[in-house]
Amino acid sequence: MTPRLDIRILLPVLSLAILLAAVFWLQPRAMSYLGLNLLFNLAVPVALATVAQMIVIMVGDIDLSMGAFVSFVACVTATLVVDAPGLGYAALAAAILAYAALGALIEARRLPAIVVTLGMSFAWGGLAVLLLPSPGGSAPGWLRAVMTVKPPLVPMAVLASAAIALAAHLVVMRSSFGVLLRGLGGNARSLGRAGWSPVALRAAAYGLAGLFAVLSGMALVGLSTAADANIALRYTLLSIAGVILGGGEFTGGRVSPVGAVIGALTLTLAGSFLSFLRLSPDWQIGAQGVILIAVLAARLLFGRRAR
């Protein structure tokens, strides 16, 4: 049991370390407070979205509306939260509740989560366009301040990523609530037999995912100071890739919150690495695909040796 667990976290750490070393080798000036902050700045919203996706994958589903939802949250944050804070925060809370309701609907009616979330991606996209037909808006002052704070020694982006990983780890791996959620992904029926309501649990899981996704959208606006309806569409693919890179599996509720955050950092770093290589931006998405495939292949090799 222990060696398998080690490998699940070892591989993401190793891929991040190798990529980081390669970046430093190509661009030694990145090895500084400012450099690190620039490298990992955009990792914070990606890491939050990845944790959200991880929670959905943990209960055996997959969320194809993550990018649209984070974009919608960004639009709410850049418009309503600035202009009418009361209404804005209420809208964000309602969005989390909507996510929980989706989870309940999926469990109660035994719906395919893939189709439901794909459909919802249209709904969130539509709401985002209604709120913000053209790019614009502004970041709430406190959010901008939080996202640009400069703590001593360690850049904010690195600290925030560590905090996200710790929070997700405590909730998912260390709390009894997390055990229940992982059990839902492992064997929903046995949880039901034990007297738990699968509908309530799936609703809770989706609500928790919605909370992290809302934080992701807010963090994104804090960094970009504006939003548009398509600002985070690529987060759907990035978040799934991040979970896989971080050692998550698709069945049995086997995920790693720390790994997922590291996976998100790796994917963000891959973008900077490619630009340091002077590789055309045409290949950015493709390279993410190649990295994903390479890590999966490596996992297969290591996993076999360990057995």
Partner: peptide, 26 residues
């Protein structure tokens, strides 16, 4: 209707159909 409402309704209708359709079969 504007693009926003159109997208929103398309999504809601798809989810609604899937919810109803899957139910009648199970």
């Amino acid at each position: 209707l504007g693009a926003g409402v159109r997208l929103l309704l398309t999504g809601v209708i798809i989810v609604g159909i899937v919810a109803l359709g899957t139910r009648s079969r199970t």
